[in-house]
Amino acid sequence: MKTFTRLTLSGAVAASFAILPSVASAQSTMAYPEKCKSQGMDMSKADMPSGGMPMGDMTDYQKASMDGMKVMHMNMMQGMMKKDADVSFVCGMIAHHMGAISMSEVELKYGDNEEAKQMAQKVIEAQKKEIEEMSKWVDKEAK
């Protein structure tokens, strides 16, 4: 009976995601604004620690989460280096929101709990809208 319930629930989950908008990676669908990037900062060489846990010992879920966190932190550091406090704040928030989307995408891919997946989908929708608004502001206000 447990297997039947799980299969039925899996089918329901698959059906519910068929009607939701496609969820591609935040990094592939939403680019961090050029005006938020700091000149002369090569963040590709920055190494973020993995909390003392060797990457090889991590689950696929943990690796995906860590990858998203690395991108978020690199972008946040770049945004926070802006000389204008307002631009720095908004750029940092864009990166932070992109991190929330990345975390939510990991939940959708690896999570089992329907309620948690619904929360993740709501986060994605809300954060994408806010990123669009903040990116327009950066385009208009950042020098």
Score class of each variant (00 low, 15 high):
V123L: 14
A31Y: 04
I124H: 12
D84Q: 02
Q118T: 09
M80P: 03
A116S: 14
G51D: 06
V138T: 02
Q39D: 09
K45Y: 00
E125H: 13
E130H: 05
N113F: 01
T59Q: 12
L108E: 00
K128M: 15
M72Q: 12
Y110K: 07
P49R: 10
M53D: 10
G40M: 04
E115C: 08
Q78L: 05
Y32H: 03
A46H: 00
D86P: 07
M80C: 06
V71G: 08
D47A: 13
A142E: 00
A100R: 04
S28T: 13
T3Y: 04
A46I: 15
A46T: 12
M134P: 03
I131Y: 02
P54C: 13
L20E: 06
A126D: 11
Q78P: 07
F89M: 11
Q127D: 12
M48F: 04
L20D: 03
A120K: 11
Y61I: 09
V23D: 12
A15Q: 06
K136G: 04
E107K: 14
D57T: 12
K136R: 05
L9V: 08
A31M: 11
A18H: 05
Y32L: 07
M134F: 10
I131M: 04
A46E: 08
K63N: 14
Q78S: 10
H97I: 11
I131A: 08
K143Q: 01
A126P: 09
Y32K: 04
E114S: 13
V90N: 06
C36W: 02
S10F: 00
V123K: 14
A85F: 03
N113M: 06
K37E: 06
Q62F: 11
D42V: 09
K143M: 01
E130R: 15
S104V: 08
W137S: 04
D139M: 02
E114N: 09
M41G: 04
V123D: 11
A126C: 09
G99V: 01
M74C: 11
A64C: 11
T3Q: 03
K128L: 10
S88A: 14
D139F: 00
E115M: 14
T5M: 09
I101M: 13
L7P: 01
E107L: 10
S102T: 04
Q27D: 14
M119P: 06
M81N: 04
M81L: 08
K143V: 05
E130G: 07
V23C: 12
K129H: 02
V23Y: 00
K83N: 08
G99L: 01
V90P: 03
K109F: 02
E133P: 05
